[in-house]
């Protein structure tokens, strides 16, 4: 996906007045949730499909979960396709992933 491209960065600052980059989300053809939520999810196209800073993979169902703003450790995200509640964590190598919160 090219959400990380400069064109995708529309402004700085999220909803809670921090300095995060924000992204314009386009529809990705993902149909497994009601219309209003569809642009927040997409199917990952294999291991070479790089994630943007506003994307993490759901460890339960492997769908990519997207946000209007870049993720930071501690962010709560929801995977609607599999109904999982997740938290963004930073791994030792600096990458961001999501852990399930039961």
């Amino acid at each position: 996906m090219n959400d990380a491209s400069e064109e995708a960065v529309v402004q700085r600052g999220g909803g809670d007045n921090d300095d995060r980059r924000t992204y314009e989300l386009e529809e990705t053809g993902f149909l497994e949730v009601p219309k209003r939520w569809r642009k927040f999810y997409r199917v990952r196209q294999g291991p070479d499909d790089e994630l943007a800073p506003n994307e993490v993979v759901c460890p339960v169902c492997k769908v990519v979960i997207r946000s209007y703003r870049e993720y930071r450790p501690g962010d709560r995200v929801y995977c609607m396709p599999c109904m999982s509640r997740l938290v963004v964590v930073e791994r030792d190598d600096g990458t961001l992933e999501a852990d399930v919160v039961y």
Binding site: G15, E24, F40
Partner: peptide, 13 residues
Amino acid sequence: TEPTTWAQEPHLL
């Protein structure tokens, strides 16, 4: 697609 806004986020529920 309509422009994305922070308020649309499912993660805010």
